[in-house]
Amino acid sequence: MTDHKKFVTTASGVIQHDHNHDGIDRRGFLKCMAWAGTGAVFVAEAGVLKSTALGAEVGSSRKHGNRLSFVQISDSHMGFNKPANPDVVGTLKAAVDKINALPDSPDFILHTGDITHLSTPEQFDTVDQILKSTNKEVFFVPGEHDVLNDDGAMFRERYFKNSKGSGWYSFDKNGAHFVGLVNVMNLKAGGLGNLGHEQLEWLEDDLRAVKHSTPVVVFAHIPLWTVYPQWGWGTDDGAQALSYLKKFGSVTVLNGHIHQTMQKVEGNVTFHTACSTAFPQPAPGKGEGPGPMKVPADQLRKVLGITDVNYVQRRHALALVDSSLA
């Protein structure tokens, strides 16, 4: 399997142009600003995760066996109808069409929250209906827009009757361990996203039983790493959660919320944020605020960006992987 791993810094590589020395790939999100209506595909072989833009060739990896492949979509904001995208149904359907057109069908879908814009049953129904045509199992975590009026009661009733606390859970798929976290509830005035003591304790306990060689994927709505605290793009106790992940060889953290791709590698952990299927938001500090950003209509769907995924093997710093898996 090792021959499938390539350590290449590509033109779309990660953290190549880190002029601000904060580990954030600004070229990555510039691309993404013109990229909506898409998701990212992840393919893991031999414990290595990589991603590619939806619609790009994934290559046929199925023949190699022991394969894990899934799609991350995020921030569908069903019910949003403002100029930044008057047709969020259309763009979510476009994302689904891309998933269905993948030559190598993914095993399941992760939705990293803000499924709806206003937490109404009708908005949840619409998304469920649209995603049904993928015939894939979908794993959700809530965004703050999904828990507006009831602290997430409706969300849990729909998706996680048996989840813990405010809705966190874990599962194993094809040799990888997945953890869905909730960081959009019980937020403190002046603060960022929040996991809370109870969830952190559960996480520490949950990971205790997982072998250190097992690839771990952690997904949550708000970035668990600090992207831009001035706009609330981070999680107050995210570092505590990440400290439990240090012992694992391969950790991938997938988030949404900021409506643009951003990637960072820190030790054994690869951080990645997904684009929205609904509307873009400005790059950190580049607009007046973190709200919906209007781009020319023909740009909204047309340009598909690339989500390269990076990973780190053992302790090698900033090892990057090309999107070609062949």
Partner: peptide, 25 residues
């Protein structure tokens, strides 16, 4: 939602801190 209102009547003197519970900044 956009253009929605919310009102609260403050009867007693004092300082009342508040925030947006989904955008706590």
């Amino acid at each position: 939602d956009t253009d929605d209102h919310y009102s609260f009547k403050f009867t007693k003197p004092g300082t009342y801190n508040y925030f947006c519970s989904i955008h706590p900044k």
